[in-house]
Nucleic acid binder design. Structure first.
Lengths: 334, 334
DNA sequence: TTGAAAGCGCTACCAC
DNA sequence: GTGGTAGCGCTTTCAA
């Protein structure tokens, strides 16, 4: 924090204003905080002096004595990914409704950034919300006693809260929809991020099994539209019999949609596509994307709500309430 | 700010830790801040006590004495609008590089929200960056002496800095491109937000005039894809001779693209479309959007750079450097 | 209506 | 290596 006036410039304090206005510091405080136990003329004189000197109260000093501002740290892997943007927007809105401030951190999808972010954040906020890929142990190491709410990730120690994303039923419905439309050979474009297959793929496998169809036509894709396109081509190369695909998320699905068009496959006739997330973005493409949709607003709001409980010592929500269920939303791509 | 442990719970201070570890407060401080003038065993004992008690330093007390954390307030009209998201992401990145914190505020595109936001923000940050629709007078009233950098808006008092967006040349190139492709009847889908026509429309008019074509086929559109679609239909209804459109921004252009497809007009053969902004989103649609593109990364970085100068008393950048020029980027839609 | 004093929680600077 | 003291800039008693 540095003063803005050009040269040298010590910070202008309440003391300077007091001296300049010929009153005491507490009178300055009264004038600035709109207390009524002050003479109108005095108040005006103080206000003028303050403006004159370019005085601005120190948020630290004020925070120290008033202990009433709450700041949440929101950690997002990638703000350019529309899904996270939607969650962030929802969280911001929920926080604003409570008069809270939200400091946003974008870890740029790099796990290494997380530690730095955590370190820097932990000393500056009252609670942390967001996505982390590091271990709970590391998380604990950096956040000490801070309330932490994880999104889209299970927690295994009692130390944390987490908002669970449950797409089992939604994916089941999606597969049922595809099967009802006559599809028997359904592929999946999974993400290729981690070593182990995604939970979404497990949901897909379960749903496929329930309908007596195979779930082994899976290709990994980077979480981008280009990645989705490439993956689709690879999938169709290996499994030309495929007439429908379910994807890890909407970004990948949109890439697949585009690729299908390039391959001369019309959607949904020649190839049905179902995404996951239910992004607003999905409504912009043609045909609009069918997707197993998540209520991102609820997701963000729920996280903030849980933080509020943690912060005020209210009874926190239990695991059963900390769930966002996905639902199939039909666009036209399937 | 409230303690997180359930009942009653006064804040755990450095004093408590000191007493519990049987040392003085400054020794605790040393242990926690990793100073080397401390005995290893003592340090461990202090750390243990701190963990035991769930101690977390007060950021206000620390900030008060160390005066070294910088926090920027970033005000965005709508985080769900990809353009602002890109700018925000760029600003976050630039700020992170400096070790600054960024508090993000979304005014939800409502002018009324601005005052509240400004009030709340002004006392919590060291500088403000972003989009505002209120008067400079109001801006000054709330921000007092705070450094303020406006984006995409001219300032008229010396009080503020602003990053200017210059699309004149880019739009000229775009119109030239359309004309070279044989288009003589070019319409525009402007935004319908304000009373007066947009600057982008003026650029369009200037460019059209330079090529000796009319620029009076203009329809207003809400800043959404649906809005763009509706506006295109209206435009083609009134001016069926139109074979190309320039739009206020990419969102509107994408809506127009979609509508064109629904109307059975193939793009770019039957209708050429050129947007403005150059969003990544434009590459996801088919055909990829041609757009007068802005370097949003540079925009965000420039804003943060100027804040840095203002904050440190360095010579601020002048108007000539605070410009982001738009350039035509061809996709396939024109 | 105003001012003096105390103290929020922490770190820096000096003694020891 | 450790502790005492002072003070960061502000608000909140309490007296005048």
């Amino acid at each position: 924090m540095v003063s803005s006036s050009g040269t040298e410039s010590r910070r202008v304090t309440i003391h300077d204003v007091a001296r300049s206005a010929g009153v005491s510091r507490q009178t300055v405080s009264r004038a600035l905080n709109d207390k009524d136990e002050i003479d109108g003329a005095t108040k005006q004189r103080v206000l003028d002096a303050a403006r004159e000197l370019g005085y601005r109260p120190s948020r630290f000093a004020r925070g120290l004595v008033r202990q009433d501002t709450t700041t949440i740290g929101l950690v997002i892997p990638d703000l350019l990914n529309p899904f996270f943007t939607e969650v962030a927007a929802a969280a911001l809105e929920a926080a604003r409704a409570r008069g809270w401030h939200v400091v946003v951190y974008d870890t740029a999808d790099r796990a290494e950034e997380e530690f730095g972010t955590l370190q820097v954040i932990a000393s500056q906020v009252d609670a942390v919300v967001g996505y982390f890929s590091c271990s709970e142990q590391d998380l604990e190491r950096f956040t000490r006693g801070l309330p932490v709410v994880l999104i889209g990730r299970e927690h295994h120690t009692g130390r944390f809260s987490s908002i669970r994303i449950d797409g089992e039923e939604g994916v089941h419905t999606a597969v049922a929809h595809l099967v009802a439309a006559g599809h028997r050979h359904i592929g999946m474009l999974d993400h290729d991020g981690r070593a182990e297959p995604s939970v979404r793929r497990e949901w897909f496998a379960t749903a496929a099994a329930a309908h007596g169809i195979a779930a082994d036509r899976v290709v990994g894709a980077p979480q981008s539209a280009d990645g989705g396109g490439t993956a689709l081509r690879k999938l169709l190369g290996t499994h030309p019999e495929v007439t429908a695909v379910f994807t890890f998320n909407d970004i990948i699905a949109i890439g697949a949609l585009r690729e299908a068009r390039r391959l001369g496959r019309s959607v949904p006739e020649d190839l049905a596509v179902v995404g996951f997330d239910g992004l607003q973005l999905g409504t912009l493409v043609e045909p609009p994307l069918s997707s197993v949709a998540l209520d991102t607003r609820r997701l963000g709001a729920l996280a903030i709500d849980q933080v509020a409980r943690l912060l005020t010592g209210l009874e926190p929500l239990g695991a059963d309430d900390l769930v966002v269920r996905a639902q199939l939303r039909l666009g036209g791509s399937a």
